[in-house]
Write a protein that binds this DNA or RNA. Sequence first.
DNA 1: GAGTTTGAAACT
DNA 2: CAGTTTCAAACTC
Length: 164
Amino acid sequence: MKPNHCDTIFKDDQFQTPTRQQKRVITETTIKKPFQQKQRQCTCKKSQCLKMYCDCLAFGEYCGSECSCQNCHNDDKHPEQRSKVLEQMVEKNSSAQLKCNCRKSNCQKKYCECYNAGVKCSELCKCDDCKNSVKLGYNQFQIGNQKFILIPVQTFEQLKSQQK
DNA sequence: GAGTTTGAAACT
DNA sequence: CAGTTTCAAACTC
């Protein structure tokens, strides 16, 4: 599995863990280990945390103590099943495009992948009555009133050292 | 906190 | 490919 995740989002002086919907955008940028990452929390009951429904797995992470999942297989005791799913995930992500099929949310709620990632809906989308007018550049996200900028880890580390 | 709504992911 | 079901998160009350 190729290393392909950048998990650092820079917002003023705070750092946040990206959500599942932001992931597809993130995977195209720089890519390294998460920095000061908040433990992801899932509540999976039926998927055994072995499907993309699981937020932790969707990021290639193990479930942790913060999770309240049931019958979790996203741990180091099920390496074969886990790696199999992750390989499929990488294949999908390598050609991933941000597109939604929203019917009722007008692409104005976080149900919409595009909206949640702060990306304007495109012609790839099949959404109904789209009102998603978010117009941020690549690597930028807006959630509520807060804007987020995705930056390379190296840049992040530079900024961090400058702040001291 | 419980129940409902939503749409991606999975399945057929 | 399209339609349906399953699922967990987003949302509402």
